[in-house]
């Protein structure tokens, strides 16, 4: 698991997604081929760190390894460049977590591998 996380840590820490050189569309998660125009002229691109909640849910029974966070909010956030990110929403009062709410990205502990394994960090979002 540690190597899998290491390989894409910049995507987790800095929201590095993709930009299409042909039509300028931007994507997160990264793509191999532009979903708008089909071009394979794709380069890494840091995503804007702000956006809006498109839809959200309060998850009561998360995956193993995330129990201590439960219940927690998950949302699909539409970033300012149109890219969509699946993310946890943290540090936000329940009545603020709603469709259309403005959010910004922060870095948090994403997953901790027990007491002796590594700590993995990644993006989460906070309602502004």
């Amino acid at each position: 698991m540690a190597i899998q996380y290491w390989r894409i840590r910049d995507r987790y820490y800095r929201l590095i997604g993709s930009r299409c050189g042909a039509c300028g569309s931007e994507f997160f998660p990264p793509v191999y081929r532009c979903k708008k125009c089909g071009s394979e002229d794709i380069a890494d691109r840091e995503m804007p760190r702000t956006g809006k909640i498109l839809t959200h849910t309060l998850l009561h029974e998360p995956l193993p390894g995330f129990e201590a966070l439960a219940p927690f909010y998950l949302a699909v956030v539409k970033l300012d460049n149109g890219a969509k990110v699946l993310t946890q929403i943290v540090d936000s009062p329940p009545d603020a977590v709603k469709s259309g709410a403005k959010v910004r990205a922060v870095v948090r502990r994403a997953k901790v591998d027990g007491d002796s394994g590594q700590i993995f960090y990644g993006y989460k979002f906070v309602v502004e």
């Binding site: 899998q4 894409i8 995507r11 987790y12 998660p29 998850l59 029974e61 998360p62 995956l63 390894g65 995330f66 966070l69 927690f72 998950l74 699946l86 993310t87 946890q88 994403a110 997953k111 990644g122 989460k124």
Partner: peptide, 9 residues
């Protein structure tokens, strides 16, 4: 990398 990673089922 992008779904399990955030704890989503």
């Amino acid at each position: 990398e992008y779904t399990q990673f955030v704890g989503a089922t």
